[in-house]
Design a protein around this nucleic acid. Structure first.
Lengths: 190, 190
DNA sequence: GATTCACTTCATTTTGAATTGAAGAATCGC
DNA sequence: GCGATTCTTCAATTCAAAATGAAGTGAATC
């Protein structure tokens, strides 16, 4: 049972959220105590689950989710505060997200802090998963399968026959997968 | 770094492997000390990695891999011995594999033990992954997204506009994914 | 119906990834 | 330069999933 992630994702609804610099809409028709914070929390949770589904630390997802649901860019400190994570996690997570091109850092002119915004395209996320997680692993298994096929030599003829067939079968699936992934990428692009 | 799994998968190449009941080919042209055991070990490793790639305990993969590379069905004890895992792990792993229809149990007539053989079709494996791991999670996220969309009410008009757009975008990707998975299944079938 | 053997269950332990947080580095304004 | 502020690093900690193994269950044999 893969646990719905993130018992946290900020429990604290303290004062008003919305710590962003510029904008300052008159709170106008604000309904719930802080509806925006709730939505941000929700998004953080959703993306946290998604992240660990594809084998990434869920904090990565939380951070991205928060930014995705935040109109204005956030500083690292704001992220730390809202998600209630450590500075270390935030720092590393942001670095990774920037590498993945899922988040854009922005050190504005006279500012001291760097602020981060989510790129709204999710494609990089997906294709990063395909390229960095699936492809390399598939490649490695294929190589290993090839090694095994070579090792068949030293087998009794009957075992040799059986295993050659079976290894061939496994290899066939690897080939299929290897053909599909690029195909999926193309589909995502279209 | 997801560690290439399974430092074990049986280190011990003790005496002769091949503990299977019936067959007993004259070892004929046996080259390496025990080539069959090596291949089995290799397969166990490959499938262990694959298993944890898709979020299953790697022991599941080891067991399946071993059976996949074993001409004759194996008893639980033989599996425990060859993979050097505990009876508990083997018992639970086999149960799961049988549920997944990846392995067939066979309590032969006058025998006391149940012997297990790998089903060679890998399709069940793949489609199980799609159906039991991906689909449900995607469904859950979709629901959660819908909830968030409803929560937009209590937002300032400008935030509302921004977030409606963004949530819509996330939802679009979910829909795409939801369309693709069945499509992949069909491809696997063909 | 007692004994043996095959298997299951589950409380405990192990393990390894994720997280923390404080110390150090870097950067900026003065 | 100096101090203040932001960010990075990494050894130590936490935590949950996986593995263990011994006690329990059940079935087959005599």
């Amino acid at each position: 049972m893969p646990q719905a992630s993130t018992a946290k994702v900020s429990t604290a609804p303290q004062g008003n959220g919305k710590a962003n610099g510029s904008s300052d809409h008159p709170p106008s028709a604000a309904a719930s105590p802080d509806a925006l914070a709730d939505i941000q929390k929700g998004m953080a949770g959703i993306f946290a689950d998604l992240a660990d589904l594809v084998g990434n630390p869920s904090s990565l997802g939380s951070i991205y989710g928060l930014l995705f649901a935040t109109p204005e860019p956030l500083s690292m400190d704001e992220i730390v505060e809202r998600l209630d994570i450590s500075t270390g996690t935030a720092s590393q997570g942001l670095r990774r997200l920037v590498e993945l091109d899922a988040v854009v850092p922005n050190k504005a002119d006279g500012e001291r802090v760097t602020r981060y915004a989510a790129k709204l395209e999710l494609r990089p996320f997906v294709s990063m998963f395909l390229n960095q997680q699936l492809m390399p692993r598939l490649g490695k298994s294929s190589d290993r399968l090839a090694d095994l096929e070579r090792a068949l030599e030293g087998l009794s003829p009957s075992d040799q026959e059986t295993l050659r067939f079976r290894i061939g079968r496994a290899a066939k699936w690897h080939r299929r997968a290897g053909m599909f992934l690029p195909l999926i990428q193309k589909f995502l692009r279209g």
